[in-house]
Design a protein around this nucleic acid. Structure first.
Lengths: 229, 229
DNA sequence: GGTGTGCTGTGATGCAGATCACTCGAGCCG
DNA sequence: CGGCTCGAGTGATCTGCATCACAGCACACC
């Protein structure tokens, strides 16, 4: 338990858990379970029809994805430590419409609905933080719809890459494969490949084995914002 | 003021405003302004960089849309009385990334951010209602991304029409033109036309002037859920 | 060593759906 | 009234991107 406390202390300062009063937090930790996930392991499966818990990522990285009826995988988002997942089905009491799995070995906190709600509502600061996080999520999704509908491949991929970009070092977080990038940005793996090759040739990105490095961030962000028409 | 009270009483029983305690509600009404909108009039414009108010629709119907850089209009959603709009930019304090306009003569309540937050947070029931509404919104958007990416025209249009369907009478709410339907479902107006003609021929829908009536709802919902592959 | 299994790289082909280019009818108004 | 704008309807064309069909490569596991 104290290790968890330690972990939480290490989280980014603006995460939901950090906004909860110490005593409420202790409460929440008491009723939650920590769980270790191996790479690829699922914590939430699309189709489960009771979503009575939420998950907070403590360390590692999670992938939120859904498989549509025709069998194609869509990666909705990646998560970093401090992020909350699974709140949607928990809050609106609907079925799980997406899966969550570990994209690398991870540690999570599994919080039962009542404990989560109690903690989130326990003080206005944490409630507002949750509301703001959900608001940003909606804004983000609106942008995804916009680019899916009106952008061509290149700017769509650029937008996906900017979303994954680590501002610190210009590398992509979560180390997605080309296939993953395709599922995230909404284009075929083959075309991801072609675009990356092209960008590498132009010196916009560099590839070192599995990882991608964005060299010309200006250009990338321009493309992500305005397309190439 | 009392007229507004009367209006609110007439709203569907499960709207956000109805979940607020009477005294808080009175408070909120005091600091808010009612406003009449003519058909087409805008209440929120994409690009405004302060979003310090939210809007509750009292009567009429609103259209939430955005224009992407390449000039195409995307209709994100339609709203019915009782719905809240503009909370996203208000909550996360970002710029307005979408516009809201009246798709018919409407009456709205314009609520300043502080009053809105105070009211929403004033009791757990209203907070939870707001959280749930936002959760459903996110779920809905995930489905939109799914269909945009993996469905062909017909099921995409079907999904859009099901979203607009009034379960009472099988008609479409908000009377969208074919162009609107296209912007809502993500396909070209010409193709909306072709699909509607086809469906009319097959007796799945009927057209009476501007309005659309869904005759075979089973079929429509099947298409919307499973596509046609 | 051999034989998976997963990711990458690249050409050739096909097609769904956007776009273009119209016509036609229905208000609406100066 | 003629001229306007706005929506519906419908063919012909064009093209971006998915799909198919490979080949090469690293790394694991027996």
């Amino acid at each position: 338990m104290t290790e968890t406390d330690a972990l939480i202390d290490k989280l980014a300062p603006d995460t939901l858990l950090r906004a909860i009063e110490p005593e409420q937090l202790a409460n929440l930790l008491r009723s939650s379970k920590r769980r270790q996930l191996k790479r690829g392991e699922m914590i939430i499966s699309q189709g489960d029809d009771v979503g009575d818990f939420a998950v907070v990522l403590l360390s590692g990285s999670l992938k939120i994805s859904m498989v549509s009826v025709n069998g194609r995988e869509i990666i909705l988002n990646y998560c970093s430590p401090g992020d909350v997942v699974g709140e949607i089905a928990m809050l609106d009491r609907g079925p799980r419409t997406a899966s969550v799995s570990a994209s690398e070995a991870s540690e999570v906190l599994v919080i039962p609905a009542p404990a989560f709600e109690a903690a989130a509502l326990s003080n206005p600061a944490s409630t507002l933080r949750l509301l703001r996080a959900m608001a940003s999520h909606i804004r983000q999704l609106n942008l995804v719809v916009e680019s899916d509908r009106t952008f061509s491949m290149a700017p769509r991929l650029a937008r996906a890459m900017v979303r994954l970009l680590d501002p610190e070092n210009g590398k992509l977080r979560h180390n997605p494969s080309q296939g993953d990038l395709g599922a995230f940005a909404g284009l075929a793996r083959e075309n991801v490949n072609r675009l990356l090759s092209e960008w590498e040739e132009q010196g916009i990105i560099a590839r070192e084995g599995r990882g991608l490095q964005v060299l010309d961030r200006e250009y990338m962000e321009f493309l992500a914002e305005f397309g190439d028409d």
